[in-house]
């Protein structure tokens, strides 16, 4: 049984039909990437999974449980971490408080402390900035904070929406290294990226989204070789 599965999911924004029957699967220990051009519906897919919008049709199963009618906070409790597009840092909470919010559902203070240590180990920069307001961090630092906060949840499945957006190339490398590292340690990841080349180089499998529909899915290696993908998303003629 896969960790996450979507079965013919339709989502709307008012009258805009944003997802037109999405089906996909993420298995335990995988990195799966979702690529597609602007407005294809990548973020909408993640928002639908995490309960921020409810699908009008279709089913979403997390570890076999139907989560498609649940509110976001219940979905989070069920083990899903969503690092949203645009990071969603709490600007007037300190870096430490932002991280603590990630572990909101954890009652044991020692466990929270352990996760904090782990987060600081992955992103030493955040430790230096611990007492600073989230809103005063640089864009890259905010991205690190957003990912670290996602890790604080210790989710069964971590969904990252464009983690490399707006970052310098060195930082992009770093973020992808970290994503790979997390996965090696056992975290399952659903990754949305504009940077398709990078995404396909860390992912095991990928789905190509176009206009709210999945037009292609395959292993990452096959997708990299695929002519259509090369033309449309990898900039290779």
């Amino acid at each position: 049984m896969s960790l996450l599965s979507l079965d013919a999911v339709h989502s709307f924004y008012g009258h805009i039909h944003a997802l037109k029957g999405i089906s996909l699967e993420v298995n335990e220990h995988e990195i799966v990437t979702l690529i597609g051009s602007n407005g294809a519906g990548k973020s909408t897919t993640l928002r639908t999974i995490s309960g921020m919008i409810h699908p009008q049709q279709g089913r979403i199963l997390l570890e076999g449980r139907d989560i498609s009618r649940m509110e976001p906070h219940t979905v989070a409790l069920a083990g899903l971490g969503h690092v949203p597009e645009g990071r969603g840092i709490f600007p007037k909470l300190t870096v430490r408080e932002n991280l603590e919010m990630g572990a909101f559902t954890v009652a044991d203070p020692d466990e929270i402390e352990r996760r904090l240590e782990y987060g600081f180990e992955v992103f030493p920069r955040l430790k230096e900035r611990m007492g600073q307001y989230g809103g005063t961090l640089s864009g890259g630092e905010q991205q690190m904070l957003a990912i670290a906060r996602g890790l604080m949840m210790n989710p069964r499945l971590l969904m990252l929406d464009e983690p490399s957006m707006g970052l310098a190339p060195v930082l992009v490398e770093l973020i992808f290294d970290i994503i790979e590292g997390l996965n090696k340690k056992g975290t399952t990841i659903l990754l949305v990226e504009q940077n398709a080349l990078m995404a396909l180089s860390v992912a095991h499998r990928g789905y190509v989204l176009q206009n709210g529909q999945i037009v292609l899915h395959d292993t990452a290696n096959n997708l990299k070789q695929n002519e259509t993908v090369q033309k449309a998303y990898l900039g290779i003629e």
Binding site: H73, A76, P84, F90, M101
Partner: peptide, 20 residues
């Protein structure tokens, strides 16, 4: 802290498991 988080960004707060 959860009250302040909800005040600043309720959507993201809900993603952290906070019942807004």
């Amino acid at each position: 802290k959860a009250i302040r988080a909800v005040a600043q960004d309720p959507q993201t707060a809900s993603l952290m498991g906070i019942n807004v």
